[in-house]
Computed example of a mutant assay.
Amino acid sequence: MNPNILKEFINTEAELSPHKDYLKSITKPSVDIAFLNRDAEAHESRVGGSPLVPKNFVWPTHIKGEYRFLGQINFSEISYPLKVLPESGLLLLFYAYDENDEIFWGSDGYVIGYFYPDVKDLSLYEQSPAQYKAKKMVFSYGEEIPRHEDLRKDWPFDTEILADLPYLQDYREDYMLGYPSFCTLGYDPTPKGDWMSLLTLRSYEKFDWCWHDGDKLMIFIENEKLKKADFSNLKADAG
């Protein structure tokens, strides 16, 4: 979310202002995402359309059918001092889809990623089973505090106040890094071990995204693999 909006929220809420130091200590940087109402160019960060791929790319499949293209992130468009992310290169993300909803979003391989360091060597996949026109994805710097009591065990205040966060001006619910955000889960969806939140996305009817009956999709990556720009092993949850 917008750092200035978050700061104002903390400073003006009577229950939170005495805990500024605590909240500062648990604040994580994020990359807020917005989708523009215009078509995207081939090399741009976007959702939908056809992905940029290397020659002889084979569209991924799973036991129930084909993966769907979720979107692509051109890291050179993220101009913020977040050294944990690659400075350049293109990440393609796909999710397992089947018409009968038999594929569980928590299963291994529900979301898969392909990373290509050199964008200029890629071209549009001509046979792509695109579901909708590509829409431009844009980024802004953000900061996140945990939005759910299940994400920590050391809260020094009543966490019910966190329910007001979605009503803040310029509040973003689609973002990279930070903490995972969810609607209906009653637990921390981050996998056990050295994992971190990579991407959080809402359900969108216009993109035919319906995660857990209209909730959110959360994608996770191991810390050490992200440092190496290795997106070969991702995990997901929804709710």
Rank of each mutant, 00 (worst) to 15 (best):
S232A: 10
G214C: 01
L201A: 06
D230N: 09
H62Y: 06
G178Y: 03
D121L: 10
I26H: 07
A40P: 04
D215Q: 15
I63R: 13
M218R: 14
A238R: 04
N11V: 01
Y97F: 15
Y116G: 05
I145S: 01
I145Y: 00
W59A: 03
R68H: 11
Y171L: 00
N74C: 05
L122Y: 02
S25W: 02
D121G: 11
L92Q: 04
M176Y: 02
L36G: 10
T184Y: 13
V138N: 05
P180H: 15
R68S: 10
S50N: 08
W59M: 03
W59V: 03
F35T: 05
Y171S: 08
R172L: 14
Y171D: 04
T200E: 01
Y187H: 15
K135L: 15
D164S: 12
W155P: 02
R172F: 13
P3V: 00
L92R: 07
Y95C: 10
M1N: 11
L6H: 00
A14L: 15
Y141E: 08
W195L: 03
F75G: 00
K227A: 12
L124K: 10
H43S: 11
S123V: 05
F57R: 04
A236Q: 08
I161W: 01
Q127D: 15
C183Y: 13
Y171K: 05
L162W: 09
N37L: 11
K55N: 11
S76E: 07
D108T: 14
L199E: 03
S197M: 12
S232R: 11
W195N: 02
W155H: 00
I219M: 01
Y175M: 04
K153R: 14
Y132M: 07
W105R: 15
W105A: 14
W59T: 10
E144N: 08
W209I: 02
G65R: 02
F182N: 07
Y175H: 01
E144A: 08
F94P: 08
Y187L: 14
D213E: 15
G106C: 04
D215H: 09
D158S: 04
I219T: 06
S128W: 13
